[in-house]
């Protein structure tokens, strides 16, 4: 694997690393809020992935000029579709975060802690 391959696909490596960090935190962390943070990183990694596939070298933002007789050259503009999709995914991410925090607050009220091992110990004692 040479350097050129790594550089040409920099977006891919970036998203893979973020995804794995998020996934690790989501599975391994003991604190529920840290898990939630991991979840957000995990989702954001996928958003990064989508957005970077829309890039065209030298492209502009997808707002097309519209003078008379102007012909749009598609190669000069970014691909709009991934942006649209990710707007939806961002909203979904925010919504999930809200519900996750609401549940975490409920857990905290119930047990007085957010450390998962402490909570599990309490459940076992009951």
């Amino acid at each position: 694997m040479d350097m050129a391959l790594i550089l040409a696909k920099a977006n891919y490596w970036g998203y893979v690393i973020l995804l794995l960090i998020g996934l690790y935190a989501l599975i391994s962390k003991n604190n529920l809020v840290k898990k939630i943070i991991g979840m957000v990183i995990f989702q954001t990694a996928v958003i990064l992935f989508y957005i970077t596939i829309a890039v065209k070298k030298g492209g502009n933002i997808p707002i097309t000029p519209h003078g008379k007789g102007y012909v749009v050259e598609a190669a000069n503009f970014m691909n709009p579709l991934p942006h649209v999709l990710m707007l939806t995914a961002i909203v979904v991410g925010v919504a999930t975060l809200g519900v996750a925090l609401a549940l975490a607050i409920k857990v905290y009220k119930q047990y007085g802690t957010l450390e998962e091992d402490e909570i599990n110990a309490m459940i076992r004692e009951q």
């Binding site: 391959l5 040409a8 696909k9 920099a10 977006n11 891919y12 970077t52 596939i53 829309a54 890039v55 065209k56 070298k57 492209g59 997808p62 097309t64 519209h66 749009v72 598609a74 190669a75 503009f77 691909n79 709009p80 579709l81 991934p82």
Partner: peptide, 30 residues
């Protein structure tokens, strides 16, 4: 699978290429 993944900024990858959605939207949306 990294080798099949299109390079960053590649205007000719299937997602960005000429005959696909990206082209249609950019040309026809207005």
């Amino acid at each position: 699978n990294v080798s099949e993944f299109p390079d960053m900024g590649d205007a000719n990858s299937p997602a960005n290429s000429k005959q696909n959605l990206s082209e249609y939207f950019l040309k026809k949306a207005y």
